[in-house]
């Protein structure tokens, strides 16, 4: 029972990171029907920015908002300068541009911050480990039903729930949210009621990347460091979560992320011999294939989405 609860808690806190990644993917997908393959790397760039802020002595409480603002700007600029111009040509061109951006950002991170895990005293890092948003020492845990649950896990989970609440209010109670929903539903008509669709798409990319940045920082905190391959698997788990929840459903993305985090940890824990730490990523593969074959619209997506 204790083991089960611990694995559940670990699963939920990792799932929270996937949920953040999935949320970003879904917000972009709803607006334009594009899958942003650079989402993970955009988040990673912002995570490095947060690391750098830490090196300059800026506390994490301030560094995180800075990273998210950088993320917002990065997303918005990407949409305006790179995605919008080629979107007119073909969806394939958009796919290639996101892939190019993936490669470029991954190179850029390495070029600026070297290709080794940071912080690293070998290259003169001041910080001992990547700043965590929540108490992360070995002694920071609470005991529930005999299971020792890390405070960090609780914090991350609560953070994601809070963010989900904020996004729910954004989507359902504000003009911006209404405009985003309208563009997602019918972009042509959205123009005809006077919505600045270009502005909405730009802001969507900005918000998505800012959320991704939050995910990157949280994950680097759990991981104690940031490195060039940090977001590869997070991206694929996030994609699996978005697929599971439905690519046009933000709520589904969050739930999908949590489900996948739990499945992953349970599979790695209980089927240790077969799945183990190595094959955890296989969970994402299986989920993506099965969902796309059995119910392409996901658990909460609408079926109108054409999978082309």
């Amino acid at each position: 029972m204790e083991l089960f609860l611990q694995r559940l808690a670990d699963g939920l806190s990792q799932g929270s990171v996937y949920a953040l990644m999935a949320l970003g993917l879904v917000i972009i997908y709803r607006g334009t029907g594009h899958l942003n393959f650079a989402q993970g790397e955009m988040a990673l760039f912002c995570t490095y920015v947060v690391y750098q802020c830490g090196e300059w002595g800026i506390p994490i409480g301030l560094a995180l908002p800075i990273g998210m603002i950088v993320g917002f700007a990065l997303g918005a600029v990407t949409e305006v300068a790179l995605i919008r111009p080629v979107a007119k040509k073909s969806p394939f061109a958009v796919f290639i541009v996101t892939l190019g951006l993936f490669q470029f950002l991954n190179w850029l991170d390495g070029a600026i911050w070297r290709d080794q895990p940071l912080p690293n005293s070998g290259v003169g890092s001041v910080q001992q480990q990547f700043p965590s948003l929540f108490p992360s020492k070995d002694t920071d845990f609470i005991t529930i039903f005999g299971a020792d649950i890390k405070l960090q896990s609780v914090g991350v989970f609560v953070l994601v729930l809070a963010l989900t609440g904020v996004l729910f209010l954004l989507f359902n109670k504000t003009k911006l949210g209404l405009a985003m929903n309208a563009v997602a539903s019918n972009a042509e008509s959205a123009k005809l009621v006077g919505i600045r669709t270009n502005m909405v798409l730009m802001v969507s990319w900005g918000i998505a990347t800012a959320i991704g940045a939050l995910g990157g920082v949280v994950f680097a905190g759990i991981n104690h460091n940031v490195n060039l391959t940090l977001m590869f698997t997070v991206f694929i788990y996030g994609s699996a979560a978005a697929t599971l929840g439905g690519f046009d459903s933000p709520g589904g993305a969050v739930l999908g992320g949590l489900i996948i985090g739990v499945i992953e940890n349970m599979a790695a824990g209980y089927a240790d011999e077969w799945v183990g730490q190595q094959l955890k990523v296989g969970v994402a593969f299986v989920v993506i294939v099965v969902v796309l074959l059995v119910k392409p619209s996901g658990l909460f997506g609408t079926a109108k989405v054409e999978r082309v």
């Binding site: 990523v281 593969f285 074959l293």
Partner: peptide, 27 residues
């Protein structure tokens, strides 16, 4: 046959991520 476009890209991407892990798996 049923999964197209970027979704196929997603499936193959996860395949590409799984492969090295499969090689490293204890079994």
């Amino acid at each position: 046959l049923r999964i197209k476009g970027v979704y196929l890209a997603l499936v193959t991407l996860s395949l590409g991520l799984v492969f090295p892990q499969l090689i490293k798996a204890p079994k």
